[in-house]
Design a binder for these strands. Structure first.
Lengths: 218, 218
DNA sequence: GTCTATAGATTGATAGAC
DNA sequence: GTCTATCAATCTATAGAC
């Protein structure tokens, strides 16, 4: 009977399901990124995923459910990057690592970054509760940490909030405005060397900007 | 006959027309900013402007025409701000003035900045030609200028492109991510003092970051 | 689970009275 | 110039055969 190998059967089924879900989520992420929630259509997501439109509704009841799952997946990735801002490291090491990780994310997850930007620009109708809890808590611990750095004289006195916004803005710009950057780069995507150079420059300007003169470049 | 006062009559008419056009453009800017081109509806713009939907089509033939006018108006404002990056001033004066102007714009034209961000995130379907001509030319003259600053030893060697992107990203972030910033500010808009402090901090970190240690703060 | 066909609501745009 | 009423196209979502 079917009971003979229940675990394997369930695993195989749920694996296939998870795979299709990921296929849809990836396609949805791209479409939501470039057209926003309202501008995206289930038809466009169906074409992008290579599935009939009805199948999307089999895996995700409504367009809003699908969008919510896309946004939540992005927030998870954001959280992992946030962890790289270690509270135990030196100011230079902590900031350099965090900025580098955020730049890497802008390159590897361009569409996710755009979906997040779209969501926030619309007033965060879906993720408002995350902003008020998880993001807020994370931000406050880092603000407290930066204030200790300032009190100890490790870095110059700057309002920690504006420093964090500067890091978020600069790194995410390379994902959200990738099209503009590529146009100004002669229509070509940034090369490995250009990404490395941009990352180094962002680190160097910000670190030196707050008084950490041991920064990387010249 | 009507010919008796043609100029006055025409002026009055065109003034009334211009006023209604501006009313529609302002409403459209807000709606396009928060929902993108595809997500915005003529119905929503009609409600936001307080006019019947049919009147919008009387002034602007199609939704795309209206969107194009909104985007072009924003580009004009961007050009005026770009002028404040004077090629004749000292590095510190030129950059400080430009950054300050961009921060002011983020506060006064939040929705325009969001429309621009949306347009670029979608691959600039409408303004691609502007990116390749006007924006590209402006960028190249400033890159050449910054390279001369570096050659003369006025600032540290940094790739001028990454510096410009950092300025654009950081200043526009205060418009595009205003909702997130306000949420992290306890749900309140930034006060006059906070805007001033943020502007000072952005100037100070960037100027010091490229070796202009005469920066404002501490 | 996958697909075709379609229902029901909403969209951009227009016709025509005032 | 302004407005109500409405069309044709498109949208989300579902029904039902396979």
């Amino acid at each position: 009977m079917a009971q003979a190998r229940p675990a394997e059967k369930t695993d195989t089924r749920s694996e296939a399901r998870a795979e299709t879900e990921r296929l849809i989520l990836d396609a949805a992420e791209r479409v939501f990124a470039e057209h926003g929630f309202g501008g995206a259509t289930m038809q466009a997501i169906a074409v992008a995923s290579g599935l009939p439109k009805a199948n999307l509704h089999y895996y995700f009841a409504t367009k809003e459910t699908l969008y919510r799952r896309v946004v939540e997946r992005i927030f998870t990735i954001w959280l992992e990057a946030a962890d790289s801002f270690e509270t135990s490291a030196s100011p230079e090491a902590a900031l350099r690592r965090y900025i580098t990780r955020k730049m890497d994310l802008s390159r590897s997850h361009r569409y996710g970054s755009k979906v997040w930007a779209n969501e926030v620009m619309q007033g965060a109708p879906i993720i408002q509760d995350y902003l008020e809890t998880t993001l807020r808590d994370w931000t406050e611990t880092r603000i407290a940490l930066i204030e200790r750095w300032i009190a100890s004289g490790a870095i110059r006195p700057v309002e920690p909030r504006w420093l964090l916004y500067m890091i978020w803005a600069t790194t995410q710009h390379y994902a959200d405005f990738a099209h503009q950057i590529e146009t100004l780069n002669g229509g070509r995507a940034l090369s490995d060397a250009q990404w490395q150079d941009a990352t180094d420059t962002v680190c160097a300007v910000i670190l030196r900007g707050i008084g950490l003169d041991a920064g990387g470049r010249a």
